[in-house]
Write a protein that binds this DNA or RNA. Structure first.
Lengths: 194, 194
DNA sequence: CGGAATCTTGAAAGTGTTCAAATCAAGTGG
DNA sequence: CCACTTGATTTGAACACTTTCAAGATTCCG
């Protein structure tokens, strides 16, 4: 169970984890299972956990006045799910995160994070790497959101995260891309013609 | 000159800079002046510098096939201008950055950054804080870009960065918001009626 | 088989863009 | 001080793309 997390970390940091690092991780992370449609966090909560996805899929979204979901992020295996801003700063999150499939997570709560591992160099290193990558990706997504047509957005997503199309239905992908499911359907029909 | 940078750093880190920290900064950062319309970086360059804005204003943008500028970021005093991804990873930047006003920058080049200050704890701390904040802001901008109407985008920008409206003309603001100058002009006319 | 979720299709409406032209504002040089 | 230039803003009309709403078709799965 913890193996996937250890692997994830070793893939990203310079010096591999020692046995004692790993046993510490085993202590502070615990397994949590979510059934399809269960929430990890809800709007208004302060996010007090960080969650590593061992198995399954989740979506992060807001809900507008009309009840429409606007999906911001999709999480699958080996991704971190949560609201980092709420977790770090302690402000209430505006987001919902729920399981789209039955999901297994490795959870650490904020107090354990701060007291037990936050200051370890491999955690700082990992955290920095992930945060920096996140910001690079968000810059690209923002640019795409503002400059590309719906068709170009689809094509780009097929190139960057083809796995999403295996895991999520079209209406979820559409919302992630900032368009309606009808638009996505029509665009796909057009793209096939060519 | 270096004072503004020292102030900027002291405002953000836990332990204030020492005299020797400051004299080291004075050594590795040098002043660069840009006249209005001069480039700091151009598309295709590898960004080999990080630049702190002492005075002036800059814009970061791409140019599409038709020559249209799509502005991603605006920089004024006390902001860092550059393409961090290109700087850190060494990939060619897709962006242009140019001065919208006559501008004074404190520049550090990559080799000095890596060899002389990159490993100092106050630089790591600052870098992490800025990167994290950047990613929080980008998440919000992406969400706004995908969910708000043009009118709501304007209102939100007026609330978050009112100073932009003093420093940049409307067509620049419009591009930053991902809309045309005509749309922004009409929206403002409508908003005034109410 | 039957029901729920998903995907497709059509027509009408909405929102923002494009293109072109007019207006406005702020220097600059004569 | 005025004419001229340049950049910025506004306005109008036609157009393009995406959404909305509604209905029908398809797929999945117990």
């Amino acid at each position: 169970m913890i193996d996937k997390l250890v692997q994830h970390i070793n893939d990203r940091i310079d010096n591999k984890l020692t046995e004692s690092d790993i046993s510490l991780l085993s202590e502070v992370f615990h397994l949590k299972k979510l059934r399809k449609h269960q929430y990890l966090i809800q709007s208004g909560d302060v996010c007090k956990i960080a969650a590593f996805v061992v198995k399954g899929a989740l979506k992060k979204y807001t809900v507008d006045e009309t009840g429409k979901e606007n999906i911001l992020e999709l999480f699958i295996e080996n991704w971190w799910a949560g609201d980092k801003e709420s977790f770090m700063i302690g402000t209430p999150t505006p987001y919902y995160i729920d399981a789209y499939e039955d999901t297994e997570l490795l959870i650490i709560n904020k107090s354990d994070f701060i007291e037990k591992i936050g200051k370890l160099s491999f955690i700082s290193e990992l955290n920095y790497i992930l945060t920096e990558r996140q910001s690079f990706q968000l810059m690209k997504r923002l640019h795409s959101s503002q400059t590309l047509t719906a068709e170009q957005k689809l094509e780009q997503l097929q190139n960057t995260y083809p796995e999403f199309f295996q895991r999520f239905p079209q209406h979820i992908i559409a919302s992630y891309l900032g368009m309606t499911k009808e638009t996505l359907s029509r665009i796909r029909a057009n793209a096939l013609k060519k």
